[in-house]
Write a protein that binds this DNA or RNA. Structure first.
Lengths: 136, 136
DNA sequence: TTAAATGCAAAAAATTTGCAGACGT
DNA sequence: ACGTCTGCAAATTTTTTGCATTTAA
């Protein structure tokens, strides 16, 4: 909590209660959509406005405190910015997990096959999570 | 052209002039956004409605004739469905290219590090294309 | 001939903006 | 105290829907 206040400040973001709550929610759940963030924070702030979520997520992305994860077949989710990693998306429950693959290898390999100067890689792996796989 | 008519029919899509034109545009340009498709087709059909683009792209995706490519920091583009491949996105000119990497290797490697049953991989590599790199 | 597609207008959904009052620093 | 943030309402943007007419097969 104190921790989140300082983290926000490190990214030049005023530590308002709403922003602290967004940070807490993302730290706890890992990946949330705009609508999910709204539902979670709504518990704590009953006068919360969706516009506040949008404004905050936008400025948090501009300041690289939060990152957007674009996913096939579902709405984007947002996460606290971390070291480069890939994502696992469950096609059944739609939850998202981090997976720590070496994206640099992929970038280097791809660089051999192109004239691009590749700076970053965005990888989403889709399938069934352990839970959903066992359910059927 | 005849060719596109049959391709559309293979995917259970009636070959209307608008759909043929969408197919031609995607075959020619590779990757186009909704708005770009609208602009391109508008040349040919001056009574064209944006709703027609949306309806067609949606049904073409349902029938797997067209695929959506979600990109970091820019609107989705659409392409004719092809064998599995990755994408290169230029951060300057915002154009998109296919790159034929072996995604199966990536999937197998990731599978070792997770309990997921991974079915597919979605990879977008971002950087500068040759043109934009040379311009500065 | 018939089911489906088109284009239009309207509706719905998603996102952004402006502003007055509240709040963090 | 100052500049920024919040919540609200309104505006804008994006996407979908309903319907009359047209069209592909």
């Amino acid at each position: 909590m104190e921790n989140y206040i300082n983290q926000l400040r490190n990214y030049h973001l005023k530590a308002t209660p709403q922003r602290i709550a967004i940070t807490e929610a993302l730290a706890m759940y890992g990946h949330l959509s705009i609508e999910q963030l709204y539902e979670v924070l709504k518990q704590k702030f009953n006068s919360l406005s969706l516009a506040t979520i949008y404004k905050n997520i936008n400025i948090m992305m501009e300041n690289a405190f939060v990152s957007e994860v674009k996913l096939p077949e579902q709405k984007s989710v947002y996460e606290l910015t971390k070291a480069s990693h890939a994502h696992l998306q469950c096609k059944k429950c739609h939850n998202v997990w981090d997976i720590h693959l070496n994206l640099d290898d992929i970038i280097q390999n791809a660089s051999k096959n192109s004239t691009f100067e590749i700076e970053s890689a965005n990888l989403v792996l889709s399938g069934l999570c352990e839970n959903c796989r066992n359910e059927k």
